[in-house]
């Protein structure tokens, strides 16, 4: 066993606890229960250690369970559960735009050399910023932000695969290969945080969620779940903002 200084061990443990703690709270903001969010966190961690090969030969492609299958599965689940077909279209549109913008930002604008002109923010943080903002503008939805950011970043791996094939360069593509710490997962989480902060701030500014010209189903979903209402009637309006979209 390597022995790191105690300070570094504490730093590592706290970093990991903070990361997964914040992740659990963010997953909880989508259509997931507390337990559901915990199960997803567990699947992210356990899945990080499982790579499923899908193509061998000169260009080897593998999909990581924690870094790709779990977040994509969650994105698909959220899409299926989406209230309206409009939300479907918005989420998918936001995904395509996110994929395009992050490809252009990371591949054309930024070259990744330390000290270059456009390297204002690391690409790792550009992905969720783009995904979150695009999805929010398209559908003002946290779930949509998660879907756009995860699937958008995943498309970068697919582009890399195509690039290797096109240029006949032997190599590996590990889709979601960094597991729970993959850019795919981080992008999804930060995008939800961003949508949450923008959304809550906006709703607070306008004094509650908008109810004019909206689908009755959506309005019904904007209400707090019954279990919460029973427990605490007074907090209904507060919860409506948080649990709704």
């Amino acid at each position: 066993m390597n022995r790191l200084p105690l300070g570094l061990i504490i730093l590592l443990v706290v970093s990991i606890l903070v990361y997964f703690g914040v992740a659990q709270r963010l997953l909880d903001r989508m259509r997931l229960s507390d337990k559901g969010a915990l199960v997803i966190i567990g699947a992210l961690i356990a899945g990080s250690f499982i790579d499923i090969p899908i193509s061998r030969g000169n260009i080897q492609v593998a999909v990581n369970v924690g870094g790709a299958l779990v977040p994509v599965g969650l994105a698909v689940y959220l899409l299926v559960k989406a209230g309206t077909s409009k939300e479907w279209m918005r989420a998918l549109g936001a995904t395509i735009i996110t994929g395009l913008v992050i490809y252009l930002a990371g591949s054309v604008l930024m070259k990744g050399d330390p000290g270059e002109r456009y390297n204002l923010i690391d690409p790792l943080y550009v992905y969720p910023l783009v995904g979150g903002i695009v999805a929010y503008l398209a559908g003002r939805s946290r779930r949509s932000a998660f879907i756009a950011a995860t699937l958008g970043v995943l498309s970068l791996d697919v582009v890399h695969w195509l690039w290797l094939v096109n240029n006949k360069i032997p190599g590996n593509v590990y889709i979601g290969g960094a597991g729970a710490f993959d850019s795919i997962v981080i992008a999804g989480l930060i995008a939800v945080l961003l949508a949450e902060v923008i959304g809550e701030t906006r709703e607070r500014l306008q004094g509650g969620p908008s109810s004019v010209n909206r689908d009755p189903d959506v309005l019904q979903n904007l209400q707090a779940p019954e279990s919460v209402r029973h427990e605490d009637d007074a907090s209904t309006t507060k919860e409506a903002g948080g649990r709704g979209k």
């Binding site: 992050i102 490809y103 930002a105 990371g106 591949s107 054309v108 604008l109 930024m110 070259k111 990744g112 390297n119 690391d122 690409p123 790792l124 992905y127 970043v153 970068l156 791996d157 890399h160 850019s183």
Partner: peptide
Amino acid sequence: HDANAYHR
């Protein structure tokens, strides 16, 4: 060679 290389 680009910034997305760090994602990979």
